[in-house]
Amino acid sequence: MTTKVSTRDGGPATSRPASRRSHGEGPFRYAATGAGIILLGIMAAIAVFLISEAIPALQANKGHFFSELVWDPNGSQVFGIAALAFGTVLSSALALVIATPIAVGVALFISHYAPRRLAGPLGYLIDLLAAVPSVVYGLWGVAFLVPLLKTPSQWLNENLGWFPLFAGEGAIGGKTMIAGSIVLAIMILPIIAAISREVFLQAPKMNEEAALALGATRWEMIRMAVLPFGRPGVISAAMLGLGRAMGETIAVALIFPATFDITFEILTPHANSIAANIANGFGEATPIGRGALIASGLVLFIITLLVNIAARMIINRRKEYARAGA
């Protein structure tokens, strides 16, 4: 019977809580449960209110929301998500491609290469990257990165222009897709690195020793015993990073030139994203314009939600696997 009571009351305590009734118990319990339910309610409310406030604008739309490139809800009332969604996906995919290898390298550096005594402080240094506010990265991107990329962009365009990403005529460099993607990469790097570092540190010591005892070099040991173990964790870390990059707003709002076209030419000043468009377009938006921005935010919410749910499911499955194998 003792077990029964403690199961119902929950909590990690295995023994039975005091039998003496107490007046505060009920209210306290309800408050705690209620707080949890409020959180669930907020998630639901986000979906509900974004939908309900987007509907009037969507009804007033004279174009097709999913295929239209133009975004003009204030004037002609024609607007579509296509170019913005494309920009969001391309910029965050580029950011992911840039950030993931570096982040995995950083994670390995902290977990398996850096001297033990330095690993903690150096890891903190990387965490500090995440503490820099988004708007500061935007400022830095415009003032420092954009001019810095000018010459390399032109060089790439002249010499490797046959490659679709480096193609383009006219203005090369400036406020480009690649500049925004690099800034996004810097912003998601600490997240990917932190999670990867944790899973690399959790790689079983006994398997690492087995590899070393077979005569493996440090890299061979990592390839045999650390990377296979950490792979699901790195994948979900990358997906969390992807979700973050897609929703990142202010930095890219400052960098992207707010064009509305679909192009892979990342070295030309053609770039935009859903989030950047919301930040840049909100100030002058009419009621229909606000509704349209909310509709685009709803799309962003759904995309990031799916990416995050997928990432969390991978992590959770791995947790169970790790627990079962322990």
């Binding site: 006994m206 087995a210 077979l214 296979p228 173990f229």
Partner: peptide, 21 residues
């Protein structure tokens, strides 16, 4: 050390086959 360990094999206290292999 790597070549020494190649010459001198070791078996550990707890069985530690590589779990992913």
């Amino acid at each position: 050390p790597v070549s020494v360990r190649r010459m001198i094999g070791m078996v550990f206290q707890r069985p530690n086959p590589f779990p992913t292999m």
